[in-house]
Amino acid sequence: MAESPVIQIDELSKIYTVTEREAGLVAAMRSLVKRKTRDVRAVDGISFSVSEGEIVGFLGPNGAGKTTTLKMLSGLLYPTSGRATVLGFRPWERNRDYLRRMTLVMGQRNQLVWDIPVIDTFELNRAVYRIPEAEYTRTVGVLTELLELAPLLRKPTRNLSLGERMKCEIAAALLHRPWVLFLDEPTIGLDVTMQRRIRQFIAEYNQRTGATVLLTSHYMADVEALCKRVIVIHHGKLLYDGDLSGLADRFAPFKTVEVELQNGAGGRPLDRYGEVLVQSEGRITLRVPKVETATVTGRLLAELDVVDLTVQDPPIEDVIEQVFSQPDGATSHLPGTVADAPFDSQKQ
């Protein structure tokens, strides 16, 4: 029998009613009598499931509905319609047993008490989450080692740098060893070294504990390092759910061919081989439809004085950009969107 998923979402929607008015005094006075409201569909009927131990990247541009979804899953928001269960709980009922088994890391203002040393916040969380003393000591030890927290624990939160605070936030959020982690931009604002460290830590935590992770990030390095599977959301709708590697195939069916020529192009038209992306000195970068890659490379090698030639998948950033640059509604016509294949790649 297939194991039931840890996170199960069916047709989940969230509509916000926002008030709005025109600029100016007359409009301000009119709004006193009659308020104009507008419905905003932040999340529009999305469905997916996540199995135990998976790390899933939840991608989308600003305002796509990622954070709203995470807030619904962590119990901060009531959905307008649809169903969701996490670990068998309905999140917005905020059952205490559920809250003890999940965590939401959202920016840098969740866990830590501003005016007291970090270790005191940890102690407070120990009491609130009812963590047994021995387990707490062990967990703090592990987190301190993995995140290199030792020099930070005695400092008040307000004296920590952004990166230090984020590390401590993450540690505080994991003291109770949650089974499900909702991480909303966990590396935002951090330098490259710190981003890498946090990334390694998330991977290690997942391996050690088997926790399920749903992660949003604007840094593709995070997603590439951690997530085999990604879910792409845009305008509140689910666009893609599948392997990260499949994302490029579906949304960017082309390859990048980089050639270095002995004597430069010598005035020869190169656009007959593909779209010229970059041309400098003797190096040329071409975008070639995936199905034509073999033919084009053959022709390049036969017709030009090629010193070096490399064929690559486009960077994931470019693929994502390609997806998000689609106008509203246009993406549903793209090959491989969920309209075509809703859950074919999901683990069960």
């Binding site: 008490v113 005016d115 007291i116 005191d120 916040t121 102690e123 407070l124 009491a127 609130v128 008040p156």
Partner: peptide, 22 residues
């Protein structure tokens, strides 16, 4: 007992904060 422990934690935090803002 758990509530006692939680309140103890809250008291300690409250006092630490109060001392910060004497």
């Amino acid at each position: 007992t758990a509530f006692f422990s939680i309140y103890k934690g809250y008291f300690r935090t409250a006092l630490a904060i109060q001392f910060q803002y004497r």
